[in-house]
């Protein structure tokens, strides 16, 4: 968003956005772990089938986290409508602004060690912004669509999950295709989360502004007064 800011702290992330961020982070972590275990289950249990419900619990955890993820997603859309300007960044990309591209290039050069100094941003930096929209908003939406389409297979015909999402299965081919898309989606998100965590910690240390504490307190602080 804006660049030339002085060191005065700015209130960027309102409470609902912060709560959503951490709930979302937790549910995605749980979804990725349980999802992986759905596709590649743990070593076989021995004894009576009636003594165990391991796969059942893993799947239950996946679906419980999925509902939290889904409700969070809807809540986040609502907050983009009523929250401050920064709350809308996740759903908008200023691709038409030359400045966005200029700053994006600057950001890429900064990570490639070609720039001496990073710029300051109140909201997301353009590179982060681009990735957030692509992975969290679009990617999250795809995971919701494919996930609920798979879920509709077990709730059955006539369930609301089937009415709302069942059409996706023939659209993507068949059930196995939906699973594969859902599965690839997990890896895309996992790789993004790795980058996101590394970059957030690094920027918090070497850039000229706060990051991690901002997502906790909501306030963006700056380390110097230069533009």
């Amino acid at each position: 968003m804006q660049t030339e800011i002085n060191s005065g702290a700015v209130y960027v992330y309102e409470a609902p956005v912060r709560v959503w961020h951490w709930v979302n982070a937790l549910s995605i972590t749980l979804l990725a772990i349980t999802g992986y275990l759905v596709a590649s289950p743990l070593p076989s249990m021995s004894g009576e089938a009636s003594d165990h419900f391991l796969m059942g619990y893993i799947r239950f955890a996946h679906f419980a986290a999925a509902y939290i993820f889904a409700v969070g997603f809807l809540g986040r859309i609502y907050w983009a409508l009523v929250g401050n300007a920064y709350s809308r960044q996740l759903f908008t990309l200023p691709l038409h602004r030359p400045r966005f591209w200029k700053e994006l290039l600057h950001e890429v050069r900064w990570y490639a060690f070609l720039e001496k100094e990073p710029k300051k941003y109140v909201g997301h930096n353009p590179l982060a912004h681009l990735f957030m929209v692509a992975i969290i908003t679009v990617g999250g939406f795809i995971m919701l669509l494919t996930g609920f389409a798979l879920y509709a297979e077990q709730t059955g015909l006539g369930s609301w999950q089937d009415s709302l999402f069942g059409w996706l299965i023939p659209l993507l081919g068949q059930s196995q295709d939906v699973r594969l898309w859902h599965h690839w989606g997990m890896w895309v998100i996992v790789v993004f989360v790795m980058l996101h965590v590394y970059v957030a910690i690094r920027e918090d240390i070497v850039s000229r502004q706060s990051l991690i504490s901002t997502m906790i307190s909501g306030w963006r602080t700056f380390k110097d007064d230069r533009p």
Binding site: S44, F53, M55
Partner: peptide
């Protein structure tokens, strides 16, 4: 036809209790 194709093999499989328990052929 719904009467024969509305459910998956998995939904009515008699080995399903082993699936839920986490008991698999390796």
């Amino acid at each position: 036809p719904l009467m024969f194709y509305s459910q998956r093999i998995h939904d009515k499989c008699y080995r399903r209790s082993h699936f839920d328990a986490g008991q698999f052929v390796e």
